[in-house]
Write a protein that binds this DNA or RNA. Structure first.
Lengths: 341, 341
DNA sequence: GGTTCCTCGTGAAACGGTTCATAATGTAGC
DNA sequence: GCTACATTATGAACCGTTTCACGAGGAACC
């Protein structure tokens, strides 16, 4: 009969006592079983079973110093873009038997901090962060203290911190250029706050391209900051715009979820896409091509992004920092171009 | 100038030395600052800053015993259903200043085990698991050892383990009933392996409903196990079916991602939906309504699912186990019914 | 039979915090 | 001036592992 200890979990000492050996031997059974005589080992294993002993990870780690876990902090766990990136990370990590923990900062610097500290205090090998702010001083500090840091989906402004990103300025340019090519001369950009670098960069790209086309960005571009970077945010933004009597002809959305909300709203309002309003999204998530109005979008190599970030983190804390920059591509579909098949 | 210690992180003893106080005092500054004289406190804080000291979470926890973190293990982090549930969990957890770590088992019992052990060894308050197998013996063991366990999206077969689920048998019934109502007499069910309870239950529901309608499930139902529970799995399954010369009239997909793959394939093959083939999905993810053929789906209360699970876990390890069962609802759209607006 | 090696097992010293009984100091009251 | 009592600070014990120098007991060899 398993005698259920009321509260305290069995420790290695309890096991040693039960098996009639020393704690060192139990530890050896756990970590280098080949060094202990089969008979002894079996006795210890029986005791472990009997007491349903589970290693205390804290103690183990306190002594050992490190664990094979890495943490990732993304802006929004409900955004397929980030989970696709996470998949890429996981697959790479699996090869080295590392383990991934994911947390969502929800664009909130305070939450980001909290998770960052949690990860650091628990001695993860490294963290991948999609920073919620432009300021990465706190990440530098973590890096200095010896925890690996890789910026995800965002170029690093500091040479000592690795980053894996996609050229967001270029993405903004691609979207704007496409809309200009389609004959639009005014663009509404449903963007996130500029504290998020990706948003600022995409904005910069749009401005650049408009200027290059001889348009004055001040009048040719209307930027609206969405309340949240998802379908609800997109819906609220476009609804607000329509209710104020404005009717844009071209809407560029900072991600496909926002675009989804826009398309949904336009459909219920019986506004034709792309005839009345052209819509361009960002990320090219899996469902973009299958929407009632297939969504034109800027594609990013999510998988490679994650895998490369994992690569950098696994290459060790002493490897030179690298700054990887992927290029986005434009995928034209029916939401922005009547001629797209 | 910050003198960079080559390797070892500063410990509380280093701080104490630098500030000219005892370790106990440093600990007090950290945990009960009101008990230490302002002057002393400032000296200690300066030393902390100077040495860029970070608490060692393992040591802290080793002594304290517990942390305010809970872990969640889902089947597929790239599936919007699970991330929506995670959102629900997070929001509830936030209220109590708990922290959520998410891991993806990828339907793999071994990965599930690995993460489970990781969480348990690190002393999380509790874990929420969408089990990858029908066997929950290992979860019972964890529960016995004092870590909270809540089954997510799956009823518990054991009274001592809480669960929050949606009635999957009912979901299968709803889908089957709807297709029967639409005049179909044969259903192809693209399902996951029956080792995943949800899949088995939905199958049971379909069989039940077919039998209730006087049909012989053996001939009226063709079940195909998809290679993976996502769009690629759906695409491969339906493609295999078509290539073998079969042309189903009604396809029920175990989730919306699979359905997405099916719709995509049918479209490229120029097979009309719902005229030639009716398609029903499961989960009613955000984009289901916006697809080129709006997808009929079984809706589950994702948010409530997560929030309730968090509730149960936060109610403490000694609270009586509860078994919450939500009811799914059918949302009819154009993919299964020509009359749906 | 003595020396040298090997194989197993031991026990105590870390690891870096928290906690708590105790000491040191100052203040008040009589 | 003495006792009583706060207020701060101290330092050692403890949490549960891992590691490592060391000892005991054989086997092998000359």
């Amino acid at each position: 009969m398993t005698q259920q200890a009321a509260h305290r979990r069995a420790s290695i000492a309890d096991v040693a006592r039960a098996a009639g050996v020393s704690v060192g031997t139990v530890s050896n059974v756990l970590n280098r079983p080949e060094r202990v005589l089969p008979g002894t080992r079996e006795r210890v294993e029986a005791a472990i079973e009997e007491l349903s002993f589970v290693r205390n990870g804290s103690a183990r780690q306190l002594r050992a110093g490190t664990i094979t876990t890495i943490g990732a902090i993304v802006l929004d766990i409900a955004n397929p873009f980030f989970t696709d990136v996470a998949r890429g990370i996981e697959e790479r990590l699996d090869r080295d038997d590392f383990t991934l923990m994911v947390a969502s900062s929800d664009d909130d610097p305070e939450r980001e901090q909290r998770y960052l500290r949690l990860f650091e205090e628990h001695g993860v090998q490294g963290v991948m962060v999609v920073p919620a702010t432009d300021d990465i001083e706190h990440l530098l500090a973590i890096r200095r203290r010896g925890t690996g840091v890789v910026l995800l989906d965002r170029p690093s402004s500091d040479p000592s911190i690795s980053s894996v990103a996609v050229d967001d300025v270029r993405g903004g340019e691609l979207a704007a250029r496409h809309l200009l090519d389609e004959g639009h001369t005014r663009i509404v950009f449903l963007n996130g706050p500029h504290t998020i670098r990706q948003c600022a960069d995409r904005h910069e790209g749009v401005v650049k391209e408009l200027a290059a086309a001889g348009l004055d960005p001040a009048s040719a571009l209307q930027e609206i900051t969405v309340s949240s970077l998802n379908a609800e945010g997109g819906e609220a933004a476009i609804r607000g715009l329509l209710e104020s009597g404005e009717r844009p002809t071209a809407v560029f959305c900072v991600n496909d979820l926002v675009a989804l909300g826009v398309l949904r709203t336009l459909r219920t309002e019986n506004i034709a896409v792309p005839t009345d309003v052209a819509v361009v999204g960002y990320d090219d998530v899996a469902f973009a091509a299958e929407l009632s109005t297939p969504l034109t979008s800027i594609r990013q190599p999510t998988h490679e992004l994650g895998a490369r970030a994992a690569d950098l983190l696994l290459s060790g804390p002493d490897a030179a920092a690298e700054h990887v920059m992927f290029q986005p591509t434009l995928v034209v579909r029916g939401s922005s171009s009547a001629s797209a098949r």
